[in-house]
Amino acid sequence: MSTTTTQATMPQQEAGLMRRYLKMLWADKFAFCAALFLILIILCAIFGPMLLEGVAAKQNLRARNAAPFTFDRGFLYILGGDALGRPLLARIVVAAQNTMAVSAGAVAGSMIIGSTLGLIAGYRGRWHSEVIMRLADVIMSFPSLLLAVTVLYVLEPSIGNLILVLAITRIPIYLRTTRAEVMEVRQRMFVQAAQVMGASNLRIVVRHILPVVLPTLLTVATLDFAFVMLAESALSFLGIGIQPPEITWGLMVSQGRQYLTTAWWLAFWPGLAIILTTMSLNLLSSWMRIALNPTQRWRLEIGSKSNG
């Protein structure tokens, strides 16, 4: 009977926790608007190519470098047309998928690898930590953008290679953060109690240490997502990122730079999409840093009660 009651109350507790976080998000209006914008970008990345890929690739030389905010060619030309007459709005929506895929793939890969190595280095100590930290020092000794440029000149520029290179360059961030957090958490009483009760090292790390470290990693990942997206845009701008006919926001900026004096909107709108997305990620990261910290969460909870 008690087991059934416990199972029934778990969804209610999760729903209550979700409402609590939504109220805290509503208390920070900038973070709320940033979350809405990021949801819009995610929807564009998921459904944009299915709906607009044909329109984004269709050339119309009569609309070559068409000015923005002219409605005679339809709503899709509200942001203007590119050098081949393709609607910029449709291309920005379609390009969101590759831009988000590269950034998300690189962040997920670097976070998984880096946090795993950090957990080992922080909990095991001794020579494990030395070997892993020297590996991080080797990666950090190369400037990340320079390393990406060098590797992508050797390898074929593709989505997979771009994700791989960017993920490798970001591993030390998560490794060092995780190791520092684990070395502090492993000294706490609940970890020592689990050790005394005979719990295995794997169970202690996964069940007791990782949940404490995870909020910090998620906050770092949100900030790192913006950095990786800017790095991908820079590589595409240099011509060694995603190659046509694939498209990203950075590649659109690169293609529009030669028309800056005659058709500024070709580079402006995809550049604005990059700026707004990175700004939204930074605002949401600041909110997460407070919302996931029990000692600072009261600021948002007071704000949500006053707004309510």
Rank of each mutant, 00 (worst) to 15 (best):
V138Y: 02
I159N: 02
R126C: 05
A263V: 00
A136S: 09
G105H: 00
I113W: 00
R203L: 10
D28H: 08
D72G: 07
V185P: 00
I242V: 12
L238P: 04
V55T: 15
P11A: 01
Q192M: 09
L117W: 04
L276H: 07
M229L: 13
G198R: 02
A234Y: 13
L117K: 04
G303H: 03
I275M: 13
H128I: 12
L147S: 03
N65M: 14
V93H: 01
L38P: 07
V154M: 14
L276M: 12
S110P: 01
T9I: 06
R124W: 14
F142P: 05
L238S: 08
Q296W: 09
E156I: 13
V220G: 00
L17F: 08
C33I: 15
F30R: 14
L235N: 07
V220N: 07
R289M: 12
L152P: 00
F227E: 15
S254W: 05
V228G: 01
I46G: 11
S115P: 01
S2I: 14
G271K: 04
I132R: 02
A67F: 11
P49I: 02
L43E: 11
D224L: 11
D28G: 02
I275G: 09
T178F: 04
L135F: 14
Q195G: 10
V107D: 03
F237A: 05
D28N: 14
T150F: 15
T222W: 06
R207F: 11
Y21N: 06
G74R: 03
W26F: 15
V220C: 03
T277F: 03
I173F: 13
A273L: 02
A193V: 10
T178K: 01
D28C: 08
G239Q: 07
L145T: 01
V212L: 12
P143E: 06
R126W: 06
L218P: 05
L52P: 03
A199I: 12
N60D: 12
M1T: 13
W127Q: 11
